[in-house]
């Protein structure tokens, strides 16, 4: 992957396999954001519910504020769906064997970080990926039943790092 900064946008020049991963990420999120809460897995529901207070705090504390957070988190899903739909339009006509340029506005950089992070965290929740899994041995990865999830988590981390460094470079 190469990253290119334009005056108002940032381009990710992706190898065919990287483009497929990114397409897969956006397609998963499109479906996830569209699915009503009751249709999600328990792990995804817990992720979207979030928590305002520490696990030790009484559940009766700040009940209204906790409900407000839940509502806001639901609004994020709708907002992010619109962005993902727009990004998916770029993949119209995408051919799996070709390199691909994914372009987003600089003002959407934070949305890209948040959206790719949703996917990383949802993958981790659905596959019960913990600290130990994140220090996986690349040579033994093919034996790991969580391999697909771990590769996507790593790939999206690579995208996030590249975007963050790009933004920092811009600031300097």
């Amino acid at each position: 992957m190469k990253i290119e900064i334009h005056s108002e946008a940032i381009s990710l020049h992706l190898h065919p396999s990287e483009a497929i991963w990114l397409l897969n990420t956006f397609q998963f999120l499109q479906q996830s954001y569209e699915t009503p809460m009751e249709g999600l897995t328990d792990q995804e529901r817990a992720y979207w519910k979030g928590s305002l207070l520490d696990p030790d705090a009484s559940s009766s504390q700040l009940k209204n504020e906790s409900e407000a957070l839940e509502l806001e988190r639901l609004i994020w899903r709708g907002d992010r769906l619109k962005i993902v739909n727009r990004w998916l339009d770029q993949f119209n006509g995408f051919k799996p064997q070709q390199e691909f340029e994914f372009k987003f506005l600089k003002e959407e950089a934070d949305a890209l970080l948040q959206i790719t992070n949703d996917r990383r965290l949802l993958l981790a929740a659905n596959h019960e990926i913990g600290e130990e899994d994140m220090h996986h041995d690349l040579e033994k990865l093919h034996q790991n039943p969580k391999a697909g999830a771990l590769i996507e988590i790593d790939f999206l981390a690579f995208v996030q790092s590249a975007v963050i460094h790009c933004l920092e470079y811009e600031e300097e």
Binding site: L53, L62, N117
Partner: peptide
């Protein structure tokens, strides 16, 4: 104060960080 702290928790969580109010 509570309002500002709550707002910060919302913002941090919007990026996927595990942030809580205490």
């Amino acid at each position: 104060n509570r309002e500002k702290a709550e707002h910060l928790v919302h913002q941090l969580q919007s990026y996927g960080l595990t942030a809580t109010l205490q």
